[in-house]
Design a protein around this nucleic acid. Structure first.
Lengths: 207, 207
DNA sequence: TCGTTATATATCGATCCGATATTTTGCTAT
DNA sequence: ATAGCAAAATATCGGATCGATATATAACGA
């Protein structure tokens, strides 16, 4: 979905500035289901104005830079519904963390433990943000998507809690075996966090 | 994560051509966790060769175009582990379908039902593909990521099964209310699938 | 035999991201 | 008090990336 269509969609909920639209796509009702940056939003709004799909009125604010408020026109709404009837592109998901975890056997187990911890924390934070958003006065579609995101994030966190330590333990055991044979795995552990502490206990708990 | 790092990571499992790497990222052990296209792979491999991080040998095949097989060098492996120790970028997820569902109240309920059905089918297909991949001889990290993807997809399908029909029913009811007052919602339903069929029964079942 | 699919590499234009620049306000910490 | 940083707000530019396209050939089915 291109930036112009996304901006049209964002303006359905009422007039907004480019800055507001950005906030919607990183926090609000659009959650994190389609990120978009300033570099795409502003050119898109300019183009949409030229096409007559949105209107722009510059509001001179107290002592802030002028706020350009965009609102949907009748043709804009028509164009939006038309584009939404077209078959949607498939989902695209990309995760650096999961790619790295796929190659976890090349990394020190301590580092992998930190990765898992940070990954869990990041998604816990998004969960918290979603819980702050009030589920009232949401359209049926918004509620469906909201609940779906909630479910997915909880499933992800749950999976880390259930299988994360086992992964780190497996890596750590392989590491011990290799080191006892004189091999080395990637960079040596930082001089601070020595204290081998063998056994497969909770390596995820410590920061 | 840039295309060069991804290609290095793909070559850990053994030598491969650009074509092979592409297949890995759309099917194999890298599942759908970081899509990448030819337009990025081939320039990346050329650059990596120039940097000495991979080596290339052109194999003249029977009567196919020459296959350029790339393999990781020692420096390549070092560079890869170094890049994987750097803090990863946050996940990026984008879904046209979920954006459209957020605005479902602007669309005919029949169309939304079709969207949900297609969305479910697409993820069911990916689940099937993952089940074909043998879970043996996977590294601990690969198994962790594989199981995670499995869990997430199942949670998604389960959510559609549990709440999809309620969403369509809510939209359909609102539609009826509007139409009885003389309004209209987007385009009229296609002439084939008439048969109003009120009530909140299984509107998702029919194709 | 004709079209489609698969194998295989390569390029090009359009788009999109991320970083950066700029200005003013308000809050916080020293 | 005031220095400094975050937030509000718009805009641009270079580089990375995608998607479509071109090219060539073999295999397979209608």
């Amino acid at each position: 979905m291109d930036a112009k269509t996304l901006c049209l969609g964002a303006l359905v909920n009422g007039p907004a500035s480019g800055y507001d639209i950005r906030k919607m796509f990183e926090e609000g009702s659009y959650g994190c289901l389609h990120p978009i940056s300033f570099g795409s939003i502003y050119p898109a709004l300019t183009a949409l104005t030229a096409e007559g799909l949105v209107e722009c009125t510059a509001e001179e604010q107290a002592r802030r830079p002028d706020k350009k408020v965009y609102r949907l026109t009748a043709e804009g709404l028509k164009a939006l519904t038309a584009r939404m009837m077209a078959p949607p592109q498939p989902d695209r998901f990309r995760s650096d963390t999961l790619v790295v975890l796929t190659l976890a056997h090349l990394l020190p187990s301590d580092h992998v433990a930190g990765l898992l911890q940070a990954y869990r924390a990041a998604h816990q934070m998004e969960l918290d943000m979603m819980m702050q958003c009030p589920p009232e006065n949401l359209t049926p579609g918004q509620k469906f998507v909201h609940d779906l995101g909630f479910t997915m994030y909880r499933a992800l966190i749950d999976h880390i809690d259930r299988h994360g330590e086992a992964l780190v333990a497996a890596l750590s055991d392989a590491e011990q075996t290799l080191q006892s044979r004189g091999d080395s795995v990637a960079t040596a552990p930082a001089p601070g966090d020595a204290m081998p502490s063998p056994g497969a206990s909770s390596r995820l708990a410590a920061k």
